[in-house]
Design a protein around this nucleic acid. Structure first.
Lengths: 162, 162
DNA sequence: GGCGTTTCGATGACATGTCAACCAAGACGC
DNA sequence: GCGTCTTGGTTGACATGTCATCGAAACGCC
């Protein structure tokens, strides 16, 4: 057990800033999204990912992996979105266990109406506040961290554990 | 209504990277924290903020503002932490409505045992992956966004609304 | 002092997320 | 084909977060 390397002043500033930004940005984006479009961020992300696929369709598992959600969470959430008419579940042709999530016309309308406002909010509260160099730096740094974490994310079959 | 300024390739890369990092980092830090210290991130933040004050004490409202939590959320959470013996509520001398949250010895022990491991994890999965320049850039950029958002956060008394 | 307004915190109903258990069906070895 | 193991998805119990409401106390004005 070695002496802890605490964060120095600059590291601490970055870490605290990150956490605070995270929280404030979340609150504000969620607030605007509910107010302007009647969607939660979760709803938006589901609809957004679906709308980016060829036919607005994805296997439940694929969508869950894409969003880094548990299947359970997604299943519960889809049930609620289905009741609101935003998505439907269809049987899967090539795997009788599976189900396919599909965007309804209402769902497509919802995401298409919500997107411009949401993107504008993302710009207003984040992107447009950054210099081009900062945007590139943020892109580089986040992807590096994602790669690092991603490597350990999808735990191998039996989770050998260190 | 003007044409939407969608995100260009670099902006999109930064925005997606940010969201993905956010999620993965959260999952991993939370996982390690529960495993190593039996604390949730919420627990950790409460204990951490308390331990940074002179006597491990804060008014409930102050703590809520500091954490950007609603009072209701904090109140519920404290009830649970109190049952686990990590904090206590005390009456407030100068304001009979108020209550003061105080760290118990067990609470202080918990945060002091958890901190080194948590800081190490933050280093391992984020800080140590960044160059000094990136750390400074992250500090600068996040604080700018926080200032921007903070200005509109604490809604004025009667929330005049635009 | 008395009255209306605001703040503090707690609470209960409800929305959302997590976890473990489950069933059904594919995959694989033989 | 037949056991066995793994995977896909659902479900129910429970943990956590949100929202509206409430009572008590402080504040401000007269």
């Amino acid at each position: 057990m070695e002496a802890t390397r605490w964060l120095d002043e600059r590291e601490d500033r970055a870490w605290r800033g990150y956490r605070r930004m995270r929280r404030l940005l979340d609150l504000e984006l969620a607030r605007e999204l509910t107010q302007d479009a009647g969607l939660s961020e979760a709803d938006y992300d589901v609809l957004s990912d679906l709308s980016e696929t060829p036919h607005g369709r994805l296997r439940l598992r694929e969508l869950a992996d894409l969003m880094l959600w548990s299947r359970s969470r997604l299943s519960h959430h889809l049930t609620r979105m289905q009741q609101r008419g935003l998505v439907t579940r269809e049987e899967c042709a090539d795997d009788a266990r599976g189900s396919v999530v599909a965007l309804t016309p209402a769902g497509r309308l919802a995401i298409e109406s919500a997107a411009p406002g949401h993107v504008a909010a993302v710009r207003r509260h984040l992107i447009d506040l950054l210099t081009p160099a900062e945007i590139d730096a943020l892109g580089a740094l986040t992807h590096r961290v994602v790669d690092h974490l991603g490597a350990r994310a999808p735990r191998p079959r039996h989770a050998p554990e260190a």
